[in-house]
Structure formats: structure tokens, C-alpha cells
Design a protein around this nucleic acid. Structure first.
Lengths: 204, 204
DNA sequence: GCTTTGATGGTACGAACGTATCACTAACGC
DNA sequence: GCGTTAGTGATACGTTCGTACCATCAAAGC
């Protein structure tokens, strides 16, 4: 055997190069040759570690998911004590492209989202359950907040959670589309979250 | 001169073929050859009426905008008397993929949205002001509703309008992604609109 | 009636893509 | 120490793309 190279490290290096391209020039500019150049390796190397392009795309998508999960977790922890409100705010604000990392994540995810339309079978080989899980987590936190008296008990948590996630995704799209910047998107999200987490002022 | 053909009609025929492909197989499957086949004409014809592919894409995007505007207008009229509420509900529900036409529109728009990431100069040659105009229209209607006493006067209409549009776009994306169907997306939108258009129950 | 010109068909060209093939290098097993 | 094999390089193949080129046909102008 030859040089004994760490395969996982090499795969990460190449997968990260793909994600970098996806967030800068767009995912569909991420050809095998472009990825190889970005990673500083030869085209053959990319083929060697990923037998096909679909395998590369799927693997990189996995890395992207890990990145996002770590970002969400870091956000929540940075918000101090873990309460339903901090979990919801942290999760949603982490998804928003408010900083370069968020921008990169959103851009890459959008690229994958668009890719599914042309290659629907790609989604089947990858658990698309991620948004569903996020939605259920948000709904659970909202129900807890209701019990804590921080959210109007008459609200339908499932519907509100779905709405919050859709709102955040829509805001992210508008930022990527250049319609507004990350700060104002975050302000809009915060406005709605503040309204949500204020108990109904029944005394006027 | 030869057959004296109606150019505008031919351009529509070809542009509509592109939009059909965009909503069925995805916009990036809409090659010049595919469009020609879908329109039932030769590749040369497509080149004749659209000197370049960008011109075809831009023209078809214009047709798409007209289609959406007509749909929005029809929705509002179908809701009966023109009030701020019917305008807001009609506009947002028209954008949602609740029926085949809405599905087609959303799919095509999503394709264009994704295209802008790889060809940013394409957006510059096309007034991207459409979402902004929609947002301002919604904000105006909300302010009117506030004056009519149908909406909490303490709400920030600009922020709420932006939120509603983002919510609707996010819901549309989730439908296209197969996460939920158009009916439940409409239910979520309606839930939030109902909450918005109910004056604050200050009397409990 | 011939010529000009708008409309159309067929096909070729160069580039980029994903993938496959062939050749070579260097380290480990025995 | 030498053959086996993991790792790497260069390049070729077939396809698809946008676009360009050449030929043809038919209607209008004089």
C-alpha cells in the first residue's frame, strides 16, 4: 500500500470545497473540475474519493447538516439559560443569513433545494425529514412556553411553529435575493417572536 | 416577404413552452432544444424569435409576471367586495400553490429565483422590484385596515407585511418540497391572517 | 416575372460536463 | 526484495449545451 492517507479527512476537504463553491458561485457551478480546483487536488482525486457526483453531493449535504446543527446549538447556548424562548429564538435566528456563516449555509441549502427539482431521486436517498424535525421541535417548545405562561394558551402551536419556520425561510430567501439585508430580516423575525412570546394583554 | 407571421404570438407560444417545462421538469431542464420540442417547433425557430437564451428567459419571465398578476386580480375579484382584507387574502393565497396553476407559477418562479444565483447579471436586466411592490401594497392595505378598525392599530404594518410575504413564500417552498400539501399551507396562512384581522380582544 | 427579403429547416462547431481508462508511484506483507 | 495494492496523474470518450452557418421556400415590390 502507498501513502496511507486519511480518507475521511480528504473527503471533508473535498466536500467543504463543494460547499464553498455552492455558497459563492452557486451549487450548479460546482462541477467535478471546479470542486477539484477549489480543493487543490486533481479531478481524478475527486473521482477516487467519491465514485460519482451524486455521492459527492450527498456527502457534502451531510456535512452541511452537521454545520447547521452545530451553529444552532452554539446559538442557543450563547443566549444563556435554556428556555423555550431561547431555543426558538436561537434556532430560527441561526437559520437566518445574518452573518457570513449564515449566508453560506443558506446559500448552500438553497442550492440543494433547487437541485431536488431536477433530480427528485436525490432527495429520496437522503432523509428529507430535517425540516419536519425542526418544526416538531419548535412546536414542542411552544407548548412548553404555553405551560410556562409565556405564550397565549389559545394558540395552535403546530400551526404557529410551521408559520415561524416558513417565515424564517422566506426571510432568508429575501436576503439571498438582495431584497433586504440580514439585520433587517432578523429585526422582522424578532418583532414577530416578541409579539408571540408576550402573554396576551387581557387587561388592556 | 414571406408568410407574414405574428411574431408576438410565436414568442408567446415558445415562452409558454419554456414555462411549462420550468414547472414540470424544472427551469434548468429548459434547454433551447427542449423548449423547441415542447413548443412543437424547430430549434432554429426558437433561435430566430429569441436571438439568445437569456432573451428567451427574460421574455418568459415577463409572461410569468403577467400570469401571476392576472391570477392575483382574479382571486381578489372572486372574494367579493374589495376590502383591505380581501386584497391581502386574495394576493397571498394567489401566490400559494393551492391548485395546479399556483403550483406551476410557484415552480417556475422558484426556478428563476435559483437561476439568479448563477447568473446575477440576469436579475439586473429585469426589474426585481416585484416583491418590493407587493410588500408595499400589502403594507398599504394593512394601514387601511387599521383605520377601519380591523387590525390592531399598534402593529407595525411594514414589518407585518414583510412577515406575511415571507411566510407565504416559505409556505410555498414547503409545498414544493413535498413537506405539506397546498391545502394545509393555505390553512396555515388563513390561521395567521384570521388572527391578524381580528381586532385585539381588549375585553377578554 | 424576377428579385428582394422574411421565415424556416438542417446541421456543424466549440465548450463543458460526468465518467472511464491507462499509466505510474510508493509503501506494506511476506 | 519484490510483488501486491492504495493513491495519484493525465487524458480520452460520449453527451449535451448554446450558438453559428448555410440552404430553401414563399410572399411582396417593381
Amino acid at each position: 500500500m502507498p501513502k496511507r492517507v486519511d480518507h475521511e479527512q480528504r473527503r471533508r476537504q473535498i466536500g467543504d470545497a463543494l460547499l464553498r463553491i455552492a455558497s459563492s458561485r452557486g451549487l450548479q457551478s460546482a462541477s467535478m473540475r471546479e470542486v477539484a480546483a477549489e480543493a487543490g487536488v486533481s479531478l481524478r482525486l475527486v473521482q477516487y474519493y467519491f465514485h460519482t457526483k451524486d455521492e459527492l453531493l450527498l456527502t457534502a449535504l451531510g456535512y452541511l447538516g452537521e454545520q447547521l446543527a452545530a451553529r444552532v446549538e452554539a446559538r442557543i447556548r450563547a443566549l444563556g439559560p435554556v428556555t423555550p424562548r431561547t431555543v426558538v429564538v436561537g434556532t430560527l435566528s441561526a437559520v437566518l443569513p445574518t452573518d457570513p456563516e449564515g449566508h453560506q449555509l443558506t446559500r448552500a441549502y438553497t442550492g440543494y433545494y433547487a437541485l431536488v427539482f431536477s433530480e427528485p431521486d436525490l432527495a429520496e436517498r437522503h432523509g428529507t425529514a430535517y425540516p419536519d424535525k425542526l418544526e416538531r421541535l419548535l412546536a414542542r417548545q411552544l407548548r412548553q412556553a404555553q405551560q410556562d405562561g409565556d405564550v397565549d394558551p389559545e394558540l395552535n402551536c403546530d400551526v404557529v411553529a410551521a408559520g415561524l419556520l416558513a417565515l424564517t425561510n422566506g426571510l432568508g430567501s429575501s436576503v439571498l435575493g438582495g431584497q433586504r439585508d440580514g439585520a433587517s430580516a432578523l429585526a422582522i423575525l424578532t418583532y414577530h417572536l416578541d409579539r408571540l412570546f408576550t402573554p396576551p394583554a387581557r387587561t388592556g
